[in-house]
Structure formats: C-alpha cells, structure tokens
Design a protein around this nucleic acid. Structure first.
Lengths: 239, 239
DNA sequence: CGGCATATATGCATTGTGCATCTAACTCCC
DNA sequence: GGGAGTTAGATGCACAATGCATATATGCCG
C-alpha cells in the first residue's frame, strides 16, 4: 500500500501488527465460562489464550473477529461486539502488536454442540459487584487457576465489566440463552454475570414490565415441580 | 521489527496504518461542543476533522492520544479515555487506516484559555434521548451544518453515547467543570449532554445523596439572586 | 426599603423494590 | 392413587426514591 501523492499520503512510519482476540462467553449451570485454548508454541507455551489471530489487510476488524470466531471456536454468526483495543508497548514479546478485543455471547447448548474441541471452556472467577474493571482469572474444572497468555486476564476483566453494563441498561440476557427460556433461567444468567443473587419477585416484575419479553404460551416439561412458562425475546430487544 | 524465530514469529503480512482521533468535548453555555479543525489538504480539503494523528511505533496508544491532545488541541493532561476502534476497509481513501478513537473532557474555562486557535469548537447537535449510537452532526456558530471528515460523525456519535452512559452510572460531570461549581452548573452539564431537561429537586437530592460531592462552605458571588453554595468532587468520584 | 430572581427546605402523591405469604401444578414415592 | 416435595406465579404491604407543589432564605438593584 504505497503512498499516493494526489489524494494525500500515508506516512512511511513502521506499523504495528494488528491482532484480534475474542472473549467468547457462555453461562452453564450458573457459571460464567470463557473459551480458551492451550498454547502449543512459545511464547508462554502451555498458557491459556483467548482465541485470536492477526487481522488481514483486506478485511475489516469486525470481519477478522468473525473469522477468528468461526475458525478457532467453531461458532460462526454469534453475537459479537468490540470491546477495547490494547496497545501497550511491551504487551507481546514477539514485537509491537496491538490487539482489538471482542466479546462474544453464546448460549450453553450451542456452545456444547458446536465448539471445537481445541477451544475448551473454563470457569471465570467473577469479581465482586462493584469490583469490575481489573484483571479476572479463570480456573479449570479441578478448581486450579489457569495461567493466562499475555494480558488476556485484562481482556477478560473488561469483557465481564462490559457485559454487566449491557445487562443493566437493556436488561436482557442477550444471546446467552436459547430462543425459548424460563424466567428462572434468565435470572440465573444475570446472577452468574453479576456475581450476586437477585430478588426473584422484583426480577420477574422488571423483566415483564420492560416489554422486552413475550410469553410463548408453552411451558417447560419433565421437571419435578410446577412447569414454568416459556418466554422469548421480542424483536426490540435485539438491539 | 523483523520476525524472531526463537520467541515465536510475527507473520509478514502487510500491516495497516494505525491512527488516533480524539473527540474533545466541552460544555459552554449549556451547549455541548467539540474541538475540530479545518482541513487544509486533500482528501476532503475544507472539511472539519477531529484532531488526530498516526500512532508511532515506540509509543502506546494512550500516549499517542495524549500527544495528539497536547500538540493539536493544546490541552495536555486532560481526562482522556478510549472509545472504539474503527477499521472498515474503505473508511480512508489514503489506504488501509484503522483509527482508535478517544474522547476527552475539558472544562469550558480551560478550553477557552488554552485551546490552540486552529482547534475551534463547534456545537454538537445532541440526539434525542434514546437515539444515541448513530452519527451525530455539528453546526457552526451561524447555525449551518459543518461537513465532517471521513467517518468522524460516527466517532462523535459514539462519544456522546459513551458520555451519557458515564453520567448514568457515576453521576458526575467529570472534567467538564472547574474544581468548584454550583449544583445548577452541574445540572446544566447533565442537561447539555443528555439533551433533555432534568428535575431540579430530584437532581439535587441524588447528587447530594451520592456522596460524590462535598460542600466547600463558600458561595458564588456577584449574582443577582441568592448565591448558591459551591461544591467540589470528592476523591472517590475521580474513578 | 421593597421588588426580583434564584437557592434551599419541606410536604405529599406516585412508583419501584424487597420481603412474606398464599395458591398452583407437576413428579416421585409408597 | 394419593400425599409429599418442589418450584412457579400471584397478592399484599412496608419502605425508599422520585416528581411536583409550596414555602422560605438570601443576595442584588433601583
């Protein structure tokens, strides 16, 4: 991409590499989980990294994030939104790399069915309410902390913070649930993300009053108690 | 920055240029205003651009934003926060340029005193409440719309949205006021940013109850009515 | 000194939330 | 087949936050 003299020129400074990393989140059994894969090469071989890759020169950043999501996690077409761009000088020992972080939300059923085996999910140690913003760690299913690649704990922490903010103003569990779900399931999503229990009645009232949900008329089945009504998101809530 | 074989190599793909643009906002006389300068060179000569520049290879993105703020606006050390990274393929006719957008908040007095003459401020046409997110236009002091450079209307729109969100959860006028101010001035800031009038009593009560303000004991002077008490932000509110 | 403009305080109706209680509907177990 | 167990969903009430109206305070100006 040489400089053009007519239309204004791009300076010939050395340029950084631009990467994309995706924080792919899901909620399973009341736990917030994130897709990670174990690094097979240096630097930091054996550490756990968010799925990522370098942006190509002929694709937009959003396209790069979608490509990563499809190729490395196996979940194309997921809800995906840009988060923050990390660009400290020494964040990557391989050279000057800035990374545009995205977060993705996937419902647990789809994640289990379609995620690539390489991208296992690990449990996120959700910070206390009001403590968001800093780095956040993950633990394996044995409860031991997993070492994270580079500054990926920072990316994860910001994703949790962003997701909490999202739940606050459009009070909806976005793409973390299948199309039909019970109010209890929706509440479990909120509790897992926020890291604190919520009042059941007030949660019900707020959700129903928001107009973002509509009843399907159907009910859940094969539960050991009174079956709850199934709801879906209205079109408006897709913003 | 050549690839290193030992520590993992950076691919030799062509790399985009990385720019930084700053949405420097201030509130004056109840109006939200943004710093712009008129382009003297193509492309889009005569259009109005946000102050910006290319990131150097040996500075962090934050440092680049601070450098732009100091060099092009003359307001070093302002409150500055990253906003979003724009990376569409054809957003800049000069080539593949992704830009990391920042927004800055400056109080009106400091802006008037120190902003460089080249960076004039223009009035922001604040969108209706609930209409945020899309592109936002500006008008000159004669009321005529000013043509904006590239996708800078999108950057501005996102800055307004972000600022509104900021005011919602930490309900404080950040750096848009001098260190001491009256509650009425604080309310005017909020109204200018939100684009709607606010209830005076409830605004007072919420602010005082938040614990983010403390009274100085002093009062404003030389007003033609009862002078209001002056407040300042507590240390906590600086987050 | 009286008029005027705005600050600040007080009271009240309305609304949202937390909490307790009550009833409904389904499965499981005997 | 009926009772126990469990969660869904509805209702009522105390309490806090908000919007609105009203009353009082405090400065300048003529």
């Amino acid at each position: 991409m040489a400089a053009k003299s007519k239309a204004g020129s791009l300076e010939r400074h050395p340029r950084p590499s631009v990467a994309v990393d995706v924080v792919a989140l899901t909620v399973e059994a009341g736990q917030l989980r994130v897709a990670l894969y174990k690094r097979a090469e240096p630097p930091q071989r054996g550490h756990f990294a968010l799925p990522g890759g370098f942006m190509h020169i002929d694709e937009s950043i959003d396209d790069a994030a979608n490509r990563v999501m499809a190729a490395k996690v196996g979940l194309a077409g997921s809800f995906l939104e840009q988060l923050y761009t990390f660009g400290d000088l020494r964040r990557d020992p391989r050279g000057r790399v800035i990374t545009v972080a995205y977060y993705a939300l996937v419902d647990a059923r789809r994640f289990r069915a379609k995620a690539t085996p390489a991208a296992r999910s690990a449990r996120v140690l959700v910070p206390w309410p009001g403590e968001t913003g800093g780095p956040v760690d993950v633990v394996g299913d044995d409860g031991r902390a997993l070492p994270l690649f580079l500054d990926h704990a920072d990316l994860l922490g910001l994703a949790v913070k962003q997701l909490r903010g999202k739940l606050d103003d459009s009070p909806v569990g976005f793409q973390l649930l299948p199309t039909e779900f019970t109010l209890r399931q929706l509440q479990e999503i909120h509790e897992a993300v926020r890291g604190e229990p919520l009042n059941k009645d007030s949660f019900r009232r707020r959700m129903l009053a928001s107009g973002l949900l509509e009843a399907t008329g159907a009910h859940e089945r094969e539960v050991v108690h009174r079956p709850a009504e199934l709801y879906r998101f209205t079109r408006r809530s897709a913003l």
